[in-house]
Every structure is written in structure tokens, then in C-alpha cells.
Simulated scan of single mutants.
Amino acid sequence: MIRKWRRLDEAGLEVFQIAPDAEGFRATSTIVHAGAEAFGMSYIWLLDQGWRTRQLDLRLSSPTLREMRIQRAPDGWLVDGRKEPDLVDCEEVDLSATPFCNSLAIRLLKGPGALTALYVDLPSLQLLPSRQRYEVLGDKRWRYVDLGVAEGFEANLTVDQDDLVIDYEGLFKAVE
């Protein structure tokens, strides 16, 4: 499945593809963000059968090339092979430049609830635990409430039959 999202707040586009692999799913993407802090990025996001992150490989150009690997470990997360004790309570990854991560949270929660996300800020690549809440508004409609890094931020989300975002209020919109 291929999905394209355009940014609504600044110039930008993401071309995303997800397909089954031997251990679950493999999502690949290229993002061009032409906003105030312009950057290009690609990622390979490996998921298990339940759409939980196994590994996320990031390749960021802003203006120099930087790479990062985030891996789920039995007792937390590894970043470039190092244990990150500050991230041990994080349940899933939230990559700031894509609405795909909202699909992971929605699938994890399976209804209204809250989780602590491993928030990856772009283009800084700063990693922070961040509390988030999801509220059900109706069929395939959700309300995202940030209780952490961007406390006070809220947005309505509409997802498709696969729980992929098609409309993220004020930030992203799926395009043909």
C-alpha cells in the first residue's frame, strides 16, 4: 500500500509504503520538508504482526547527513545500540514529521486511552518521552491530545480502514 501525505502548515510531502515482511511489516518513506527548518528524510520502520515497532532506521539530511537507529529491546529501547534508560517507559515511537506514528498508537490502544511515546523531534533528532491521549470521536475519527512535549496541542484525526491517517487537522492530508 502506498500513501502520500502533504503538509498543511508548511510546504512538505511524504511518500510512504507499507508491506508485509517475514516478521510483520516494513514501512518505507521519503519526506521532503521545505518549511522554516528544511530537511529531507527517509526511514525504514520495521513492525511486528501487531504493528508494534521493532526497529526504526532514520536517515536525515539537514544540511549534513545524520543517521539513527531505534530498536525495541526486552527492557526498553536501544538508540544506535545503546540503552536509553530515560525512554524505558515509552510504549511506541512518535516521529514528528509523519502521521504514520498516530496509526501505531491507535492500533496499540484499540480505543480511547493514553500512552507514553518515544518522541523523535525533527530535524533535531532529540528523543524525549511524551505522554499522549487519544479520544474516539466516532467511526474512524479520533482526537489526539498532547500531554507531554507539546502539552496543550490537540487535533482531530480521520483514518481509513487500515487506521492510516487520511486527515490530520492542520498538519497533514492524504493526497492521490
Rank of each mutant, 00 (worst) to 15 (best):
T53M: 01
Y43M: 06
L58I: 09
L58S: 04
T64G: 15
R52M: 15
D57S: 06
V32F: 07
R52V: 04
D57F: 01
Q49V: 14
E37S: 13
L65H: 11
R66F: 05
F39M: 07
T53P: 00
W45C: 00
L56S: 02
L60M: 10
A38R: 12
S42N: 08
E37Y: 14
E37R: 12
G50M: 05
L58D: 02
D48P: 03
M41G: 04
T64N: 13
A36S: 12
F39D: 06
R54K: 08
S29E: 04
R66A: 08
L46P: 01
E37P: 07
R59Y: 03
R54M: 10
S29R: 01
Q49G: 11
G40E: 12
G50R: 15
T53Q: 01
G40K: 08
R66I: 11
S62W: 09
W45E: 00
I31V: 15
S29T: 14
M41Q: 15
Q49I: 12
T30P: 02
A36F: 13
D57H: 13
G50K: 11
F39K: 06
L65M: 05
V32Y: 04
S62Y: 13
G35R: 06
G50D: 09
D48C: 13
A38W: 06
R66G: 04
R59C: 06
L46E: 12
Y43I: 02
L46M: 05
W51I: 12
T64F: 14
M41W: 02
S42Q: 06
S42F: 00
Q49H: 10
P63G: 09
G50Y: 11
G50P: 02
S62D: 12
T30R: 13
F39W: 15
I31M: 04
I31W: 00
L46V: 06
G50C: 09
T53I: 03
H33I: 03
E37A: 10
S61E: 14
G50S: 08
Q55N: 07
I44V: 14
G50E: 10
T64I: 08
R52H: 15
R54P: 04
R59K: 14
G50A: 13
Y43W: 08
I31R: 01
W45Q: 01
L46C: 08
S61F: 11
D48Q: 06
G40P: 01
A38P: 14
R59V: 09
R54F: 03
I31F: 03
T53S: 14
L46Y: 07
F39H: 11
I44Y: 00
A34L: 12
W51K: 10
R52F: 06
W51C: 15
L56G: 01
W45F: 08
L56A: 08
S61R: 09
R52D: 09
G40Y: 05
L56H: 01
W45N: 00
V32K: 09
A34H: 07
Y43R: 01
R54L: 14
L46A: 08
S29M: 05
L47V: 04
I44L: 03
L47S: 02
Y43F: 08
L58F: 08
